[in-house]
Every structure is written in C-alpha cells, then in structure tokens.
Write a protein that binds this DNA or RNA. Sequence first.
DNA 1: AATGAATGAGTGTTCATTCAT
DNA 2: AATGAATGAACACTCATTCAT
Lengths: 212, 212, 212, 212
Amino acid sequence: MTDITHTRQRRKEARPGEIIEAALILFHQKGYSATKLDDVARAAGVTKGTVYLYFSNKEALFKAAISETIHPNLDRIEELAINSTESATQRLRTAIASWATALNDCKGSISKLMISEAGNFPDLTDFYIETVVKRSRLLLIKLIQAGIDSGEFRQTDPDMLARVLFSPILLTSIWRHTYARQDPITYDLNQLAQFHLDIVLHGIAIAPEHTL
Amino acid sequence: MTDITHTRQRRKEARPGEIIEAALILFHQKGYSATKLDDVARAAGVTKGTVYLYFSNKEALFKAAISETIHPNLDRIEELAINSTESATQRLRTAIASWATALNDCKGSISKLMISEAGNFPDLTDFYIETVVKRSRLLLIKLIQAGIDSGEFRQTDPDMLARVLFSPILLTSIWRHTYARQDPITYDLNQLAQFHLDIVLHGIAIAPEHTL
Amino acid sequence: MTDITHTRQRRKEARPGEIIEAALILFHQKGYSATKLDDVARAAGVTKGTVYLYFSNKEALFKAAISETIHPNLDRIEELAINSTESATQRLRTAIASWATALNDCKGSISKLMISEAGNFPDLTDFYIETVVKRSRLLLIKLIQAGIDSGEFRQTDPDMLARVLFSPILLTSIWRHTYARQDPITYDLNQLAQFHLDIVLHGIAIAPEHTL
Amino acid sequence: MTDITHTRQRRKEARPGEIIEAALILFHQKGYSATKLDDVARAAGVTKGTVYLYFSNKEALFKAAISETIHPNLDRIEELAINSTESATQRLRTAIASWATALNDCKGSISKLMISEAGNFPDLTDFYIETVVKRSRLLLIKLIQAGIDSGEFRQTDPDMLARVLFSPILLTSIWRHTYARQDPITYDLNQLAQFHLDIVLHGIAIAPEHTL
DNA sequence: AATGAATGAGTGTTCATTCAT
DNA sequence: AATGAATGAACACTCATTCAT
C-alpha cells in the first residue's frame, strides 16, 4: 500500500531522474546504439511512452544522461583549487584523491561512454571536453606550476605531467568499468593514484642515471 | 585488358583484408552498432553481398577485424623480452618505445573499440584480455622485476608500476583516436612515454619529502 | 469571483460545442488522421482528458462534428420548398442563393471533409448522403420540374440539371476551403451561382446553332 | 515457370510503377495518413523494405504518385489548343470531352487526393495548382474568349464561365470516386459535360425573362 | 566470385485512450 | 468536471541477411 507499488504513479518530479539513471547504466553496459528504449523504460519501471514524455528522443535522453551526471561534479572539482594554504604537494595529493573518488562513482561510466560515442555526438563531445576535461587539466596544471614556482618540484613540462598524472586513475577507472569480469582490478583507485604520485615525486631509480 | 585482369586477380586475394581494413576504420569511428555493412562494403569498394562471401555475419567481421589486427603485433611484443643483454632500464625504454609505436597505428583503434564493445562481445573480450592485455602487462612486470633484482630500481610493487607505466601511452593513444578534433594532442606518443619514464625513474621532488 | 464562476459555468455547458468547433477546423485543415486530439484539446482550451468527457473517442468526435454542423442547416433548406407562391425561376434563385450562403460558412468544410473521409466512415457517409445530398438534390429537382411543368423551362432532364446547377457552388466552396493560398477565388459564391443560373436560363449562344 | 510467379523477382524497372499504382489506389481510398506502408507494399506484391528501395519515405512516395500520374496528362491537355481550324464551339466540345475522358481514369483520384491533402503538402499543392489547374483553366478561358471574339458566344466573363463549365465534370468525377457506393452516378461523364455545354450554349429559358 | 534486389525482424516514435487524483 | 501522467498498440523506417542471377 506504500506509494511505490502503484501501477500508474504520479511522480513527475522523480521520473526524469529515474529514467536517466536507468539509461546511464544501459548506455554504459551496451553502448548507445545497442541500448533499446524499451529496455531503458523497463529498467526505469515505466513504459516506452513515458520516456518520450520527458525526453524528446533517444539522443536527447543520452545527452541529458551525460550532462546531468556531469554537472553536479563540475563544482566539486573547482573547490579543490581554493585550499591554498597548504603546500602544492599536499594540494596535488588532495586533488588527485578527489578525482579518484569521483571516478569511482558515475564519472567512470561517463568517461567510457564519451570515448565510445564521441564520434557520433560532436556537440556533446565539445561540451564534455570544454567543461570537464580541459577544466580538470587546467586545475592540475596550475597545481604543478605552483609546485614548480614554490621550488617544491623540479622544472618540468606542466601540461605533459598533468596528462601523465591523470592517466592511471582515468584509464583504470575506465578499465574497471569495462573489464570487471575479465581483468578485475584489486587496487583501490585512490591507492593507485597515491602510489603513482609517490613515484612521480621520488622517482624509483636508485643509482644516478648518467648511463642513460 | 591484362592490366584489369591483373588488378582483379590481385584484388581477389586482397578482398578480405580490404574489407577488414575498411571495417576497422568505421567500427572505430562510429562504433559497432552504428556501423552499417553497407558503409563497410562501400568503403571497401565492394557490395554488401561480397562481405558475406568472406564473413558469415557482422559479428564475425568484427571479431576478424579485431583478431587480425592484434595477431601481427603480438609476436613483435614478445621479441622485446629476448634482448636480455642490456640493462633493465634500457629494456624498459625499448619496450615502451615499441608499444608507443604500435599504439600509434591501428592498435589505438582496437583499444578504443574493445572498451566500447567489451560488454557486447564477452568471448572476444576474453581473448583480447588474455592474448594482448595480460601478455603485455606480464612482460612489463618481468622487466620491472628484473630491474629490482638487478638493483637498478627501488623495491616497489611491479604490478602496480606496470599499470602506471602503461596508462599514459594507452590512454593518450585512445584519446587521440577519440578527441582528435576537440582536444588535439601535440606530443608524440613516444616522447610522452619517455617523459613519463624519466620522471618515474628520477622523481620530481627536489626537497626531501619527510613532511609527507 | 462571480465573474470567473460565471465564465466557468457558461463554459461548462458550452464545452462540447467549443470542442466540436475546434475539431471541425482542424479536421478540415489537416484531415481526420492527421489531426491529433491533443491539438483539438489545445485549440478548444481544454486538456485531452476533457475531450473524452464529452466524446467517447476520436471517431465519435468526428461524427458529432459532422452531424452537429449539418443538422441546423437541414431545416433551413426545407423551408425553401414552402415559399410556393413565387415562380419556379424565382424559387430556384432563392434556393441557390441560400445554398451559396450556407456553403460559405461551415458546410464547405463538411463537404470537403466528407470527400476526404467517406471511405473510412461508411455509415457516417450513408447518413450524410441521405440527409444532406439527396435531400438537397431532390428539392432542386422538384423546383426544376415545377419550372418545366409551368412552362418556364424547356423540357430537360431535371436530375442532370440539378447536378449541373449545384456543381459550381459546391466545387467552388470546396476549392476555396482547400486552395485559398494557391488559387484564391475572388468571386462571391452567390455571385458565381447567379452568374451560372443566368447563363443556364438564358443561354449564351447568340447565333442559331443549326451547325451543331 | 513464367517469370511472374518468382518469389524474388529481379525487375527493377517495373517496381516503382507498380508501387506507385498500388499507393495511388490506397491513398485515394483511405487518405494519406490512414494508408499504411505495409498495405501499399502488400498491394504491390512486395514487402515494406522494397518500397524504401525506391522511395525515400512515405511522403516521397505520395508526391511521386501524384507527380507521375499528372505528368503524362499534361501534354495531352496542351494538344487540344492546337486544333485551331474548327469553330470555338467545336473546340470547346472537344476540349471538354477530352477532360471528361481524362477524369474518368486516374485524374479523378488525383483531384480528390489533392483536395484531401493540400493542407499537408503545400509545395506539392503549389505544383499541382500551377501545372494542372491553372494551365487547364487558361486553355478553357482562351477557347471561350475565341468564341466571344468570333461572335459565336455572347459577351461574358470568360474566367467565371471557365470555372462554371469545368465544375460539373470535375465535381462529378470526384463524387463518383468518393460516393460510388452511397450515391452511384449513372451518367457518363462526357454525357453530362455535353448536356451542360448544350444548356450553357442554348439556354433553357423559353420565355424571355425581362422580369428578372 | 560478385552482385544488388528483396526481405522481414527489429526499433524509434507517435498518439488515441485510460485512470488516479 | 477536469486534469495530465502513464500506457501500449500501431506504424514509419532501418538494416543485417538472403538468394537468384
């Protein structure tokens, strides 16, 4: 008798979110084309017609699923740049830990989905690259530059280093979302990130490498 | 007249390869589902019927495209493990350079494709993970372990380090194949790989990091 | 407050008529199938559900729209036959003028609609043919026959003449409702009808036509 | 064993015509919206997919059906204007007889279809009005003007008369195609047309009508 | 070996109809 | 009486697959 089990429920506010959630999972699992709207509807506990009540077509649903999932995360990223009293090293640790956490949730799905469908949704891809990718990378670059300026880090190419630092957590996140069955990854994403950061900061070579 | 017959005869044997080549490009650009056999056929310069002469169906074509492209690269990778006279550091450099080269070509496509379609082709994914991913990673782990054993590298987790070392080139390769338009990457893949390796070997921290 | 209640109360009784009016316009503009109940509802200022409050389904609404519009005109037509003191010629003029007036309003829509949808609504078509078409034609035939009997008209086929006399105003009415944009008709319908009647009564041939 | 009964026949040349023929009949019977492509296909002896082999979509099929049917008739109409040695009266008879014949065939369907769907296909309607309607009317106007100039006809409005002369055959043709079941018309179209023309030429009033 | 006309199952989308509020 | 969220059957359109030539 709880209002959850009603056949024809009236909950306009909740519906779009529920549909987006279901859609995101299926798009992630099967890809955009291979996902049938019937399946999305069933997974969301509605019928196909209801999906069209909230999204004008499949493409709009896909874009909404991406955008809606991205937006809440955008602000969280910016916050990281503000903790300015600590050392660059420490802020770098914090930033990467935050990303690792974010990628553990939904954002791993998004990253994978965008890789799969970028070619088919150019404008959505533009939006994603500008608002998520470049923004994140810029923040990382700033932190690295700050470390160089403060003398914490050796002189190096901040852009290249930013890419390098980001790669393991992003790729591993995608990997985990993709090959969970075939190649399970036992590491925690944050653990891996800090391991990498430690190595990048210290290096692993024991002997001075004049021989190279 | 002879010229035409020649062309035809040459083509006759080349057909499957031409179709696979065309298919790989399109699968990569648009994804498996969004790629029409009509387009593959047109791109290969044949008709749809001809595709079915060589591949029993779309799935078989996809699997062939993946497998055929993987195989030639597998052996090349193995060779690297044999040059054992050099230092572990040097062999690591060489191995990573080889991968960077391989990923510049077609293998970037494969990596991206597998990420997109792993969920829809479990057995193909098994094959890919076993023959490509794990094999490559194992080789990398061995080289790292050799470096540790020889005293060239500090004591560390070889598996984690292998993943970390592979991530930038693999992700950047995928990235370049995916976001060429929106986020062009100017670095040469090998350049990036060596940059990363240098940092991993040396570290970037100037001051001793007791404070961490 | 009273004003609003007033409006509502007035509306409550007027609802079916408002819906029919909106429906007739849309059916006429787009045809039965191409007209959506959503559009009818919106045009009538209500919601889709309200339409179903008054009409059991779309077909019923269509039939009601046709029938309701026809009925008020039926009686007016019959009145014409009663003014029997005048000459047949004069009664013919009056009758045709009445029809021209009637066709200027809504009946032109009906005629066009019936032509479009006759095949899909056989019973409605039966009703229309019996109550409107045949009844009108019969009246016309009677007037013509009266004219022949009174020596006002030459001996001729009254049925054929009735059809001929009706055609220009009916077709022009339909035409105007259909091709208003592409082929605007400047004539007043009654003007055209009387022009035709004049010609039919007078003949246009000046020379004696033995040669025919 | 005749090539008619083969399941998968190879007759690319005949197909479009067969499909158009089937489509025209169904569009005419049920209207555009109410006609299902499945039915068109079945009526043409093919499957739905085959329809799309020749027509990009339903609208294109509709337009093709209209256009293809109109075109062959266009030239026939023009020929009529050339027989210039005869009297205007005679040429008028011939022209109207030709139209009556043409309307007996397919053109009656077209006229009805255009009335039903004009609102939904503005550009097709433009084409129809310009190439068929106005062209025909202009020819009729010219013949009437010729008769006036030669003294065969009384001074009158040629445009109005053209419309009046055309109405009975056009409306009756539409009528017959629409209400064949409910209101069968026994007259031959040409018979009706000549009856009308006779009346128009002679007039039916015996007594001089000064009183009007 | 190669073609390309034909197929038909499958899917996105629409819309008349229902019903809880 | 009126709403409008939800439904689901129906239909336009696609495309992998087949097969006669």
